Computed example of a mutant assay.
Amino acid sequence: MSGHNKWANIKARKTVQDAKRSKMFTKLIRELTIAAREGGGDPESNPRLRTAIENAKAANMPKDKIEAAIKKGTGESSGEELFEIMYEAYAPGGVALLISVVTDNKNRTAQEIRHTLSKHGGTLAESGSVAWNFERKGLLTVPKEEVDDLEELLLLAIEAGAEDIDEETDPIEIITSPENLTSVRNALKEAGYTVNEQLTYLPKTTVKVSDEDAEKILKLLDALDEMDDVQDVYGNYDIDDEVMERLAANL
């Protein structure tokens, strides 16, 4: 490879990386702002903000940007008016989706969501037709390698308010109500476990999808994730891990 071509490729990769980094920062800043606006600026009493701060730090966002975003949310400084909207949709195979967006332009975002869904075989759903199948939950994970006594972990989590535990996964997943997320997190951390936490939407029922539909669904999820205004997408699809890994590698 000539030096010119090599440099051209490096610049092309860097442009993509910088674009993704910028897009990531935009999403993280908006989540910090909305989280602070909805639950206050104290992360200890606001698990959504706590998770947003941890995600921002993991992305190497500067401290001053994190603080500025939080101040916008609490009203200590001015900024663009942001709207948090939850779209309900159907993906190929009858899979239900909740699409969480934060936007400064409702009309633009609605058009983009419709276009992306239509392009990938999905459709917008009527209000309430999808949301009923999802529940707001706290999700904590603990690396399996840290757990010497599984029963001890289970008892600790349950006593702190956990609702359900999936010990078959790695990391181990612990489900709580949003209200008990902080108490379970604190109990696990005090016991010495490494804990990751988030507020999420979990489906009450799932849909097993074919390999063909799985590919369409993952392409749709990837396209939605590329949108600046989309924060998260929740679905009730059931795709085998091997199929998902194989398809995701080709996206």
Rank of each mutant, 00 (worst) to 15 (best):
M1K: 11
S2H: 07
G3A: 10
G3P: 01
N5K: 14
N5T: 12
W7H: 11
N9A: 12
V16W: 12
A19L: 14
R21A: 11
S22V: 14
F25T: 09
T26Y: 12
T26G: 13
L32H: 04
L32M: 07
L32Y: 04
T33Y: 08
I34S: 01
I34F: 08
E38S: 01
E38F: 02
G41S: 05
E44P: 01
S45M: 10
S45C: 08
P47Y: 00
P47N: 02
R48Y: 02
L49V: 05
R50G: 12
T51L: 10
I53F: 05
A56S: 15
A58I: 04
A59T: 05
N60H: 11
P62F: 06
D64S: 12
D64C: 05
E67A: 14
A68I: 04
A69S: 09
I70E: 03
G75M: 08
G75N: 11
G75V: 09
I85D: 03
I85R: 03
G94M: 07
V101W: 00
V101K: 00
N105V: 02
N107F: 14
N107R: 15
R108W: 08
T109N: 02
E112V: 07
S118A: 15
K119Q: 13
G121F: 03
G122P: 03
E126D: 13
S129R: 13
V130Y: 00
K137E: 13
V147T: 06
D149L: 04
D149C: 03
L153R: 01
L156H: 04
A160P: 06
E163T: 12
I165E: 03
T169S: 15
T169N: 09
P171G: 04
T176L: 02
S177V: 03
S177P: 01
S177R: 06
E179R: 07
T182C: 00
A187P: 11
L188Q: 09
L188Y: 05
A191R: 13
G192H: 06
Y193D: 01
T194M: 08
V195F: 10
V195L: 11
L199S: 02
L199H: 03
T200L: 07
L202H: 09
L202D: 08
V207P: 03
V207M: 10
V207L: 11
K208V: 13
S210V: 01
D211R: 06
D213Q: 01
E215D: 02
K216F: 01
K216M: 03
I217V: 00
I217P: 00
L218E: 00
L218F: 00
K219D: 08
K219P: 02
L220P: 05
A223I: 10
L224Y: 13
E226Q: 14
D229I: 04
D229Q: 08
Q231L: 15
Q231K: 12
Y234L: 06
N236H: 11
D238S: 15
I239P: 00
D240C: 00
D240G: 01
D241Q: 09
E245M: 04
A248D: 10
A249M: 07
A249E: 13
L251P: 02
